[in-house]
């Protein structure tokens, strides 16, 4: 049905429609309510009826979930006051109703045009995500495009129980242009696609264990990935944070001086870098043993 079209090529609304059981999506604060950003309007920037975030409830494989999808084309999917408040509200609804919450991320972080409001909204949403987690309500982030999850949304994605990525997805805080500006073109060329993807792309994140699944770039594969995590949660406990502390310490010690992402790939069991670069997500996952 949608298998022929790549997931990263769909719009947010198309992604929602392609992921959920047919006809099961019911949108909250839908476009006819016209809740648009008064701030963008003041700056002479076009507004959007959903402020760049589609939210609602739906079913996946019969299971009821809350679902949000960011619109990457609209000011980079960035979080303003309304966008952020919708996101906070959705996770709070998920906690109240004890229903899994899935976030299809496509955002560079805070919407600069609305200043600190978006930043606070991201912090509030992080609190709401952890409210869900304390109740064992699964929170799942999907990162499947090159706009990816950056800035505050990159940090927010790491607060969720699980992250599903595709090889097109990118996860980080500072984007390639910012890094190049800071370090110089010699140290980091943002036009070097291979380097950029090996720095923050799904394959590297999966190897390091920051992405919990690496799936094909199709709606069917993303849906299967989500389904696998709907019944699970990852508790924040003393045991879990101590294990994570050790793991992250080990990672920093091992790779803190690594100048080349290939070093990480090799040490994680990837023998043929060229073949691994060309491999699809699941093929790649099979090629490399998972880094723990």
């Amino acid at each position: 049905m949608t298998g022929a079209i790549l997931f990263h090529e769909l719009t947010a609304r198309q992604r929602v429609a392609a992921l959920v059981d047919a006809g099961s999506f019911s949108e909250l604060l839908p476009p006819p309510e016209r809740i648009t950003s008064p701030y963008l309007a003041q700056l002479g920037i076009p507004v959007s009826f959903d402020d760049g975030l589609v939210i609602g409830h739906a079913r996946i494989g019969g299971k009821k979930i809350y679902l949000a999808a960011q619109v990457g084309q609209f000011v980079g999917g960035a979080v303003g006051e309304i966008h952020g408040a919708k996101l906070t509200g959705l996770f709070k609804a998920a906690a109240r109703d004890k229903l899994p919450c899935v976030l299809i991320i496509e955002s560079g972080g805070v919407r600069l045009h609305e200043g600190s409001s978006g930043e606070i909204a991201i912090a509030e949403t992080m609190r709401a995500i952890f409210e869900c987690r304390a109740l064992k309500v699964p929170t799942i982030a999907v990162i499947a495009t090159d706009i990816g999850a950056f800035g505050g949304i990159g940090i927010l994605s790491t607060c969720c129980d699980f992250r599903i990525m595709t090889e097109h997805g990118r996860l980080g805080i500072s984007g390639p242009i910012v890094i190049e500006k800071w370090m110089g073109k010699k140290a980091y060329d943002s036009a070097n696609r291979a380097l950029v993807w090996k720095t923050s792309g799904g394959k590297t994140k999966y190897l390091l264990g920051d992405a919990d699944a690496l799936v094909h770039d199709t709606a069917d594969a993303v849906r299967d990935g989500i389904s696998k995590f709907l019944g699970k949660s990852s508790a924040v406990s003393l045991v879990s944070v101590k294990a994570r502390q050790k793991e992250l310490q080990k990672r920093l010690k091992k790779f803190g001086a690594a100048s080349d992402p290939d070093t990480v790939w090799k040490s994680m069991g990837v023998r043929d870098i060229q073949a691994a670069s060309l491999a699809s997500g699941p093929e790649f996952a099979a090629l490399a043993k998972r880094g723990k």
């Binding site: 719009t11 609304r13 839908p30 476009p31 076009p46 959007s48 619109v71 084309q73 609209f74």
Partner: peptide
């Protein structure tokens, strides 16, 4: 449906809502 939306607001693009 009572309403329908097509397109997204982005560079060189538009959204159209019919109600």
């Amino acid at each position: 449906k009572p309403w329908a939306l097509a397109g997204v607001v982005g560079s060189g693009n538009l959204e159209v809502m019919l109600e």
